[in-house]
Design a protein around this nucleic acid. Structure first.
Length: 451
RNA sequence: GGCGGAGUAGCCAAGUGGUAAGGCACGGCUCUGCAAAAGCUGUAUGCGUCGGUUCGAUUCCGACCUCCGCCUCCA
């Protein structure tokens, strides 16, 4: 059996088969950040998850094109821009830069493309024009353009592919904002929002007047531009299933740009949310970690945070705790210790990995990214390696193979060791091949280093 | 109210119709200036509750309890 993913579209685990007839190229899109503030640890769970998917596909030999959008125009951003007095460009550039700082600290591979919504206004407009031409979108009295779910369904398209929806009982929300009173139907959503006074300088010209894109449209426009009208994988947090992703499907398939019978996206993968210290993250509870807080105030590393995020299956809600980070630190140190010894023995030479271990590892990850089983393989390997090291039974060749085995698995985890912690450094100073012995005269120095 | 997900040792977390992986924490032993690391080793008669099916259920079915998400431009 090969790689399998749980597809939200079918609510089942499916064999992964790329659209590419050669079975080689894979298009992967992940909904990226809205750059209105520092991203929190929950946001990053999704990006680490997407990074794992990408790395594992590459590990499996696929040629992945990874796209992640930057949403740099949206209600909250406009509000903040107005309050801060800076321009939208200045404001979003700052938080985009901060976002990538954290993204890098977590060891996430940069996507091949990180398109900004505001850089694709033309594509967005042309997509909306297609929808209007097909009679699925309409310009309302307020100057905005809306997507008509009724018309869409009238074309034989299905709305509600990702969630079961009861249209008769769709409740008119109490919080329908006043600027959307012109919609024909309550479930219709904005493709283009007419310029409002509070938007300030944030607007673009369009065939329907000045305004800005709706929330969902940029993902449709940019993903199809960069990956084609049909692509393999679309990822995001579970909260995006509805309405964001449902609406993306509607906009993209409603435009009629796909080859007959081909979907906009073949596999939809959604990551579950994070809890913090047993509670739902919320600003009022104050349990809202940002990565920089964890790094600067709590003195953890991005690598430790990444490890912790990678210990739980992506579809299970996960309880993120400082205690968990502490145990992540210990577990990583154990791996590093073992790898450090191997490096001393084998150097950084290239050797084939242990096939049996890699096969076991692959079997674990193939199963909808069963990271827990993957870690079991890693720690069984650590144990076996340590045992051989302690018994002095590891030949040079054996050490090279063991090291290569870890490097292979590490490609998937993305946990390259950066700077060693002071504890490990102290040991590295006093270690010699084979056994870790501290010369007696160095005892005081060792104690000093320890402090 | 509608839809969906989950409840496994102190904490995190796999898994299976036939008797519970792994990590962290904790205890014992070996090694050691003391530690740490490493090695060996111990720790759930039990998998939310109550019923049912079965030779046998944690795994299947039903009910219930609890938690979480979406239905409201939050990853």
């Amino acid at each position: 059996m090969g790689l399998r993913f749980f597809n939200t579209l079918t609510r089942a685990v499916e064999e992964f088969a790329p659209l590419d007839p050669a079975g080689k190229k894979v298009g992967l899109y992940c909904c990226g950040p809205t750059v209105h503030d520092f991203a929190h640890i929950g946001n990053f769970r999704t990006f680490v998850f997407a990074d794992l998917v990408r790395r594992y596909l590459e590990f499996k030999g696929y040629q992945v094109t990874h796209v992640m959008n930057i949403t740099d125009v949206e209600d909250k951003i406009i509000k903040r821009v107005r309050e801060s007095g800076s321009s939208r460009e200045e404001y979003t550039a700052k938080y985009e830069a901060e976002f990538f700082k954290d993204f890098d600290a977590l060891g996430c591979s940069r996507p091949h493309h990180t398109p900004r919504a505001t850089g694709h206004i033309d594509e967005i407009i042309s997509l909306i024009e297609k929808l209007i031409a097909r009679g699925i979108a309409y310009k309302a009295a307020d100057g905005s353009v809306y997507f008509s779910i009724e018309k869409y369904r009238g074309c034989g398209c299905q709305y509600g592919q990702l969630v079961k929806l009861n249209f008769e009982e769709l409740r008119p929300g109490e919080r329908v904002s006043s600027d959307e009173y012109a919609k024909e139907s309550i479930a219709d959503f904005a493709l283009w929002k007419a310029r409002a006074p509070e938007d300030g300088q944030v607007f673009w010209p369009s065939p329907w007047g000045e305004g800005r894109p709706g929330w969902h449209i940029e993902c449709s426009a940019m993903s199809m531009k960069l990956l084609g009208p049909s692509f393999d994988l679309h990822l995001g947090g579970e909260d995006l299933i509805f309405p964001h992703h449902e609406d993306e499907i509607a906009q993209s398939e409603g435009a009629g740009v796909q080859t007959a019978g081909e979907p906009f996206v073949k596999y939809w993968l959604h990551g579950a949310h994070l809890m913090v210290e047993g509670k739902k993250m919320s600003k009022s509870l104050g349990n809202f970690f940002t990565l920089r807080e964890l790094i600067e105030k709590k003195k953890f590393t991005g690598r430790e945070v990444r490890y912790l995020l990678l210990t739980a299956h992506y579809r299970e809600s996960f309880n993120f705790t400082l205690e968990g980070l502490q145990s992540a630190r210990t577990a990583l140190a154990r791996i590093d210790e073992c790898v450090g010894k191997l490096q001393e023995l084998a150097g950084d030479t290239i050797s084939p990995a242990d096939r049996a271990v890699i096969e076991e590892f692959t079997a674990a990850l193939d199963d909808d990214l069963n990271v827990s089983s993957g870690w079991r393989v890693v720690f069984d390997w650590v144990k076996a390696t340590n045992k051989a090291l302690a018994a002095d039974k590891l030949s040079l060749g054996g050490a090279k193979t063991a090291l290569a085995t870890w490097y292979k698995m590490r490609e998937v985890w993305g946990l390259e060791a950066g700077k060693r912690s002071s504890k490990v450094l102290a040991e590295a100073v006093s270690s010699s091949p084979g056994h870790l012995t501290v010369p007696i005269q160095d005892a005081k120095r060792a104690d000093a280093i320890r402090k």
